[in-house]
Simulated scan of single mutants.
Amino acid sequence: MTALRLCSSAFVATLVLLASAGAAEAQDDRPRRTRVGLGPQLVPSYPGADGISLRPFVDVVSARGTDSLPFEAPDESAGFAVLTRGRFAIGPALGFEGSRTARDVGAALPKVGATFEAGGFLQYALTDMIRLRGEVRKGLGGHKGLIANVGGDYVARKGDDWLFSIGPRVTFADGRYHDAFFSVAPAVAVATGLRAFDAKGGLQAAGITAGFVRHLGGRWGVSSYAKYDRLVDDPARSPIVRRYGSRNQVSGGLALTYTFGG
């Protein structure tokens, strides 16, 4: 899809320009502490599924000295800031999308292999309580498509004692990604009885994510989240979703955290 490719090219160009804007920040020798969370999460088995799968929920953040641990949305991709300029931050973003098989769907659809996704993010804090973030990732194998997530979060917190966040999410994907999960080729239509359908790239879903982190005492705490997405446009019109899946995509997770160092 031309528009999404243009947006992704502009996104990458912005990362490069920001990365070359000046020298790296001075070395910070203050003691570092790191909070690691691990637990289960339930997510859609594949994009457009009406069932859920159990996967690990991992949450890792770190800070130096007496600085509060930074906010990270529970549904953002794995990554870290390689450059911070005031309220701007940029860095790599790594994601993973599970496979989809004919058995998963219950129909003779082509398999979509498990996909590692690599790309980058750009985020900007409007205020201490409002953060905007965008990610663009490319599938390496599997769906081989391009996917972008844009969102914002309102963050309320009391230091590291507790943190609550909530905000909207919008997901875009190119034609290759939508073909993999939502299109029905003519030959597949004959085999399954579904009508042929060519899903174009564009808007995929809109939704909301909320997260809550709580310090329990000592070095222990909990991290949790809930997320809802609603498929729109071609993904919502896909015969696969209409017959075998759901336009409502729900996720949630709960992790026990432990803080090292400090």
Rank of each mutant, 00 (worst) to 15 (best):
G159S: 08
G152I: 11
A89D: 13
V155P: 09
I166K: 00
G141S: 07
G86N: 08
E97S: 14
L122W: 08
A148M: 13
G120M: 08
P92E: 08
T127R: 06
G86H: 01
T101S: 15
G145A: 12
F164E: 10
A93K: 04
A107F: 07
D128Q: 09
S165C: 05
A114T: 09
M129A: 11
S77P: 03
G175K: 05
V155K: 02
F116M: 11
Y154S: 09
A114C: 05
D104Q: 06
A114S: 15
L140E: 12
V105G: 04
L94G: 01
A156P: 00
S99F: 03
R133T: 12
R131M: 13
A118P: 07
A89T: 05
L163H: 02
L132A: 13
G151N: 06
A173E: 02
E135H: 11
L94T: 08
A93W: 01
A81E: 07
L83M: 14
F96V: 14
R100I: 08
R87A: 14
L126H: 05
F88K: 02
I166Y: 02
F80P: 04
P110S: 04
G175T: 12
M129I: 11
G152R: 11
T115Y: 02
A93R: 08
S165V: 05
P168M: 01
A78F: 15
T127L: 04
K158I: 11
A102H: 01
R133G: 07
G152Y: 10
F121E: 11
A108G: 05
V150F: 14
E76K: 15
G134E: 05
I90Q: 03
A173Y: 02
H143W: 03
G167W: 10
Y124L: 13
